[in-house]
Simulated assay, not measured.
Amino acid sequence: MSGNGATLGGLRGKKIVVTGGAQGMGESTVRAFAHEGAAVVSMDLREDLGAAAAERISREAGADVSFVGVDVSNRGQVFASMERAVDLLGGLDVLVNVAGVQRARPAEELTEADFDFLLDINLRGTFYTNQAAFAAMKPAGSGHIINFGSDAGMTAIRGLAGYSATKGAVHAWTRTAALEFAGHGVRVNVVVPAMRTPMTDAGRTEGRAGVYSRVPLGGDLGDPDRDLAPVMVFLAGDGSRFITGQTISVNGGIGMVR
């Protein structure tokens, strides 16, 4: 996406689903794809917020952006919503699964309800959406699934044991899915972002701002539109055709991978 928001058309013809598209990194990703000429279906549990964002982006970008409500923790809903999205788009080239939640608790205080909440959305949501997308991509023999992980899934962050466990599982799932889906021409990668979002703003309020201040590039979290969106456009495009099973960190160096 260009600095002035002009349509470049780099993703023209691409058919893309983005979960968690109502706000934050998901909304930014939907906006970037729309400005690059893709047809996008945004999904989110928050239907009013998500539908308003999709309509606004569609109008601003002059692009085909639709909204479909979904609870990613509900397998039946995920498959039904993905089927509807594929019908709207006329196929599916890319899934970006941004939907995720965080709940901070010391490890010894993590409750069953806390862990179920994190597991249902972060982990079950990942494999339900991935399975539904793969079912749509497999007949075409091509596609790209992009999951969202976290530095918390690769290193210890105090107070995030439950969140870390689910994101570490997302990373492991992504690697295995990439291996299994490759024979059908479907790629799977995981992005590890460190961006300012409503969720990270809540983390500052809860006293975890110290983690974010240790980002080597600039000493703070990135901006989703400037720092994450261009990477997402690249990954959704044909230039990433030989990349699969990888952890792609867009985090200002807060965590460094090989």
Rank of each mutant, 00 (worst) to 15 (best):
R241V: 09
A202M: 13
R75N: 04
A156W: 13
V17C: 01
V170H: 02
K167T: 02
V17Q: 05
M195E: 08
L89Y: 05
A38K: 09
Q102R: 11
R103A: 10
L11Q: 08
A178R: 05
L123V: 12
V65R: 09
S240C: 06
Q102D: 12
A229P: 04
G252C: 05
S164M: 03
N147E: 01
G185T: 06
P139K: 06
T200H: 03
G153K: 04
A194D: 02
E180R: 12
S2G: 15
T200V: 12
L119T: 14
R258L: 14
V233Y: 05
S150P: 00
M154R: 15
G3T: 13
Y128P: 01
N74A: 06
R214T: 14
H144T: 14
L123P: 09
R158G: 10
T244Y: 01
R84P: 00
A85N: 04
A140H: 11
G237F: 08
F242A: 14
N122Y: 10
S2A: 14
H171S: 11
E60V: 10
K167L: 06
E112D: 15
G50W: 10
A80H: 05
V231N: 03
V40R: 04
R175H: 07
A135L: 14
G183I: 08
L11M: 08
G237M: 07
V17P: 02
L179W: 09
P224D: 02
A32P: 04
A202R: 15
F115K: 11
